[in-house]
Computed example of a mutant assay.
Amino acid sequence: MTIEQCLATIDLLCTRPFPAEHGRTDVGSGYHIAELGTSNGYGAEDCWDRAEAAEECYERGEEVRDQLTDRWGPSDHIGLQTVQLRTETEDIPEPWVHLSARVGDIHLWRTEGNGRWIALGVADRDEADEIRLLVVITEIDPP
C-alpha cells in the first residue's frame, strides 16, 4: 500500500460510522482497525527475513506518522506494555486490549471536530505471526 493509500484509508475510517458490534472485518463497537502494511509471510521461520520485513514496516509507519503529524501536529508516543499487564487485573476496553497484545508502542493523535483517536503502530509481538502496520480509529479513550 502506498503512503497515499494509507492516508486515504485513515481518512475513510475517520469519517465512517462505527459498527454496532465486533465482526469478521476486525472492527467493533466504537472502533475500526486497518492493516496498512504486512510482512507478507515472514513468521518465525526466517529471522533475517522477518527482521528486514519489520524494518520496512517501521519505516512505512514513520512515513505515515510524518504525514499525520503534518495534519494534526505531534503525536503522543505511548508504550502499551503496561496496558497489556493491566488487562490481567482491570477491565480495559477494546480496542486497547487487542492493540496492546500485538503492538509495543503507538503514536496517538486526537482529531479535532469528531474527537476520534488515531493510533498507529507496528504489530510485531507475536513471532509466529506476520508483522503488520496497524491503524486504529476509535472514540474510546485510551486507558
Rank of each mutant, 00 (worst) to 15 (best):
M1R: 05
M1C: 09
I3Q: 15
E4M: 12
E4G: 12
Q5N: 15
Q5K: 14
L7M: 15
T9M: 10
T9A: 15
I10K: 01
I10A: 03
L12V: 05
L12A: 14
L13A: 08
C14T: 13
T15S: 15
R16G: 00
R16P: 06
F18A: 06
A20M: 11
H22F: 15
V27Q: 07
Y31T: 06
I33Y: 09
A34S: 12
E35R: 00
E35D: 09
L36Y: 08
T38L: 07
N40V: 11
N40Y: 12
Y42E: 15
G43V: 14
E45G: 05
D46G: 12
D46S: 14
C47H: 09
D49I: 05
A53W: 06
A53G: 00
E56R: 10
E59P: 00
R60Y: 03
E62V: 07
D66I: 03
Q67V: 11
Q67N: 06
L68G: 03
D70C: 13
R71D: 12
G73L: 13
G73T: 08
G73K: 14
P74T: 11
P74R: 13
S75I: 08
S75W: 01
S75K: 06
D76C: 10
D76P: 05
H77P: 07
G79L: 08
G79A: 15
L80N: 07
Q84H: 12
L85R: 07
R86Q: 07
T89C: 09
E90R: 05
D91P: 02
I92L: 08
E94D: 09
E94Q: 02
P95A: 09
P95E: 08
P95I: 04
W96N: 03
V97Y: 09
V97S: 01
L99G: 01
A101K: 02
R102N: 00
V103T: 00
G104E: 07
G104F: 07
I106S: 02
L108E: 03
R110H: 01
T111F: 05
T111H: 06
E112S: 15
G115C: 03
R116T: 11
W117H: 02
L120R: 01
G121W: 04
D124P: 05
D124E: 11
R125T: 00
A128E: 11
E130N: 14
R132A: 13
L133H: 08
L133K: 08
I137M: 10
T138N: 02
T138K: 09
T138P: 05
T138W: 03
E139Q: 15
P142S: 10
P142E: 05
